[in-house]
Nucleic acid binder design. Sequence first.
DNA 1: AAGTGGTCTAGACCACTCT
DNA 2: GAGTGGTCTAGACCACTTG
Lengths: 250, 250
Amino acid sequence: MTSARSSDAPRDTEPIGQARWARVAQSLRQRVVDGEWKAGEAIPAESALAHAYGVALGTMRTAIQALVEGGLLEREQGRGTFVRGAIAGASLARFFRWGAVGADELPESRVRKVRRVVAGEQVARALGIAPAASVLRLARHRVRAGRVLLHESIWLPLPLFAPLEALTPSKFGPLLYPMYAQRCGVTVHRALDDLSFATLDARVAAALGLPTGHPAIRVARRAFDLAGRPVEYRITFGDANEFRYQAEVR
Amino acid sequence: MTSARSSDAPRDTEPIGQARWARVAQSLRQRVVDGEWKAGEAIPAESALAHAYGVALGTMRTAIQALVEGGLLEREQGRGTFVRGAIAGASLARFFRWGAVGADELPESRVRKVRRVVAGEQVARALGIAPAASVLRLARHRVRAGRVLLHESIWLPLPLFAPLEALTPSKFGPLLYPMYAQRCGVTVHRALDDLSFATLDARVAAALGLPTGHPAIRVARRAFDLAGRPVEYRITFGDANEFRYQAEVR
DNA sequence: AAGTGGTCTAGACCACTCT
DNA sequence: GAGTGGTCTAGACCACTTG
């Protein structure tokens, strides 16, 4: 492979209006999405990849760096380059601060119901499926010191999440996303949280131990896998008086 | 300047546990903070800077890239590298969506009062000044179609903002940060918005045309200049029912 | 046409991790 | 010690903007 790039003599099928590093990055991304390297695994060394793709080391570094900034990969000096697992630090508890006591640790998880239901219009739109399609619905509470802090409804598309249907609520671990990965092979790679204000209806208010009509923050989350497909829709309610969030502008 | 880097024969005062590009970046940042290149101006070409610092082009690119990612500079192919001006898209209106009508455009600004006051404890802590120090306090409404949407109280340290003290409210433009830059030489480079829930007291409720005790979102903003010094403290109230915010997790 | 940033090459050595 | 990513060099040519 020469370094000459005169306007004639294109190399194979090149260039298609994209930089070489961008095309290499796209190819690497596709190989991750296709499952050639799984979450948590290392991809080949940059020198090996550079040789395999017939590009200079610096070009391969640029390609990998773009994927690191995109959140797909992470690098560790001396160890390697790894496919990022499920997102972390994404707990909806980050929007609330229930006093100083145990503020560092996440509330416990308590899955209350697991049931197959018809999606309905809103859920179907969020998950990109037909309104008549079946989905798995979880009812879940987040609890600290015996107090219910968050009330969650979670919808998961079927048959992707069928392995969870047979589980009894007590079999669910404290974190859902690792369960999605282990039981269903679903890696949650990105999530969009839509925050708004609401007042509690009688049912949710009772669960949270608050009066009906109490002010609440409502978080509607759509979560996506590596390929960008929606894999979870979730609606969470918490006491508005405990709502705290910091946004930075730069 | 040679490229040899054997463990003896250090070059001048080098290396201090930092990569060369990081030290170059720090030096460039300092020169911006010191005002050698002002907001909106171009800094010298990367080739000129690389020669002046005695480093390779790639090293200078890495240094500049770090400052671009840090939000201090921005690059444009064919034009140059520029010092970023005041932050944009930081309007507190982004936390609210008052229906579809005119949702794109920002509400008008209406400065109602400009007054010198004693800071007090909360404001002094936010601005990093003495509680007895004088500050300038602005009262401001954000209005659309005759309706007051946001109620704002703004505190600015003196004597830095003294040029604003003589202005009558009608002399204030629709955007404050450009005024800070033009009249006071202050570039707002970063802001932290702390969101929480509140109920409106009688005074603010009346201003917003809402009943006392109405649910509201309270945004407490601290804004910082290029050197990281706090230059503005602001508390904004808006109707909680109009609150909408989207957060992404990756 | 001149000047800018953007891409790319082909090396070298350094810092770190693991065995 | 072998293998990884991190830093750095010294060029070259390309794409874009401006006078």
